[in-house]
């Protein structure tokens, strides 16, 4: 465990000393929150998706894709600079590396969640809207946890497979997908078969379940409730989480002893 903690500390220092983390992981979700709040205000509150209770789960899920970006950049850079190769010849095991990277992702993800919740609280106070209860906030954090894990391991996977130049590009595709297919700022429930398609990916179900917890209503004015979409979504989210964990571990182990 000492090696995991040691590697985690190193990774955390590397991340915290990179200004990009503050812009992408912390600044961007806050900016999005306020942007949609302003848009909603100027549209006289006619956009339910942009209501604070509806936005909160969407922005949390969206912000996790930046955890993926951060980890993919870190892993691919460590690989590119041969820092990892050097560590591979040390007594560190593959689980030391994977846990060391994952814990940093977890740290950033939890921090992002808290910042999103605080921002949501501030906006709800400004707009005089009742905010989510403390018990539901805890439930929301737990409910979004699988999505965070999925993003952490996708970040490790992409960083392992791709170079430091191509990994951010691949991640930006996923960031866009998280925003569009998650329905973070788009009323997917009104889009017929496109909505059905989105149920098979983890983004939309995560946002959907989050919105049940925050007691928000959809674009049709119907309150989100634990229905078939949510229960099917739980399966989708779990499958994506398990697949990302296995793929990342497989790719990383393969990279540890390779001809490259």
């Amino acid at each position: 465990m000492n090696k995991v903690v040691n590697f985690y500390k190193r990774n955390l220092k590397e991340v915290l000393r990179d200004p990009l983390i503050y812009i992408f992981c912390l600044g961007f979700p806050i900016a999005m929150f306020f942007l949609f709040y302003i848009i909603n205000k100027f549209s006289n509150g006619n956009t339910p998706t942009f209501e604070v209770l509806s936005l909160l789960p969407g922005i949390i899920v969206f912000s996790y894709s930046f955890v993926m970006l951060t980890l993919s950049i870190m892993v691919s850079k460590d690989k590119q600079t041969f820092f990892l190769k050097r560590l591979y010849s040390s007594p560190m095991k593959s689980y030391d590396f994977i846990l060391g990277y994952s814990l940093v992702g977890l740290f950033i993800g939890v921090l992002q969640t808290l910042i999103c919740i605080i921002t949501g609280l501030i906006i709800s106070l400004i707009s005089s809207v009742d905010f989510v209860s403390i018990s539901n906030i805890l439930l929301l954090i737990i409910a979004q946890f699988p999505m965070l894990i999925t993003n952490i391991f996708l970040g490790i996977l992409f960083g392992t497979i791709f170079s430091d130049k191509s990994a951010p590009g691949i991640c930006s595709v996923f960031i866009s997908l998280a925003g569009i297919l998650g329905g973070c700022w788009m009323p997917i429930e009104t889009m017929g078969s496109f909505e059905t398609f989105c149920r098979f990916l983890p983004f939309y179900p995560s946002v959907y379940i989050g919105r049940i917890i925050t007691n928000s209503t959809n674009a049709l004015g119907i309150a989100y409730s634990f229905d078939n979409i949510a229960s099917f979504g739980l399966i989708t989210i779990s499958l994506f989480m398990i697949a990302s964990i296995f793929l990342a571990i497989f790719a990383f182990n393969k990279n540890m002893v390779s001809d490259k």
């Binding site: 190193r10 220092k13 590397e14 000393r17 990179d18 041969f82 820092f83 190769k85 050097r86 010849s89």
Partner: peptide, 13 residues
């Protein structure tokens, strides 16, 4: 232990 061809150190440390 190995000192590889590339100066592989933790750059931000």
């Amino acid at each position: 232990d190995i000192s590889p061809q590339e100066t592989s150190v933790a750059n931000n440390l």
